Simulated assay, not measured.
Amino acid sequence: MRRYTVPALAVTATLTALALLPATAASADSAVLTYDSAAGSAVSVGDVLTASLAGGTKAALATSSGGSSGITCTGSTLSATVTANPAAPGTATESATSQTFSGCTSNVFGVTGVQSITVNGLPYSTAASSDGTVTVTPASGSTIQTTVVLSTLLGSVTCVYRAPSLAAVSSNSTTSLTFTNQAFTKFSGSVLCAGNGYFSATYAPVTDSSVSGAPAVYTN
């Protein structure tokens, strides 16, 4: 019987693009990123945007696209610093600085526990466009990398996965950021490591933690 381990987590999401698709038309002089509402105040350069998994959802790391075999995590957070926020329509940029995962379990045969999931090589560059598309890219000549350490029937196994970039979709109606079946390929690890990994998760709400009350962030 074949044994598989878990796929890697997409960064930041890094792991970590943090902007939202406009639900309503914004004023002509609105910035791409605003807080409180689509027509609210412009998010300042240097502000830190944060998000956790949407209530009642999990981050999924499947061994096949759309599959149910793999790892699920009950907790995950994203953090990014705004580096540019031009007038809309346009593209805001961010530096994705952190992504964490917790409460992770696996239903893969032979895997007895998930020791850690680590997003490597941060920060990553994030581009959040007015049309709601969000792209996460590594430094020139590099890749997005995630390391997964598992407990298996054969002992501890380390799986390293890489992707050239990641994409997400944002929504102002739920102030959310969604990654769907973002594909990684195995860079190194035991034969027990699956050859590919697919990351899906919804983070909401995305907030500006540098502003009092941490208001929700919108994209225009």
Rank of each mutant, 00 (worst) to 15 (best):
S69E: 15
T147L: 11
V191C: 08
P205L: 11
S79I: 04
T74M: 06
T185Q: 05
V191I: 12
N85T: 10
V119C: 02
T112Y: 00
S44G: 06
A42L: 06
G141A: 10
V148A: 11
V134L: 15
V111M: 11
V11K: 00
K58Q: 15
A25G: 15
T158I: 11
T146I: 01
F109Y: 15
P22R: 14
A19M: 14
S165V: 09
T158P: 04
A60M: 01
A216H: 07
A8G: 15
S212R: 11
F187M: 13
T105I: 14
S151K: 12
D47F: 03
A183Q: 02
Y35L: 03
A54I: 09
G197T: 08
A13N: 10
A92N: 07
Y218V: 14
F187P: 04
V6R: 10
G141Y: 06
V32K: 08
N120A: 14
A62N: 04
L192Y: 11
A87H: 05
V191N: 13
G56H: 01
F101A: 02
A54L: 06
L166N: 09
S68I: 04
T50M: 01
P123C: 06
A19K: 00
L20P: 12
A31R: 01
Q145V: 07
V169T: 15
S188Q: 14
A13K: 06
L9T: 15
S102Q: 08
V108C: 15
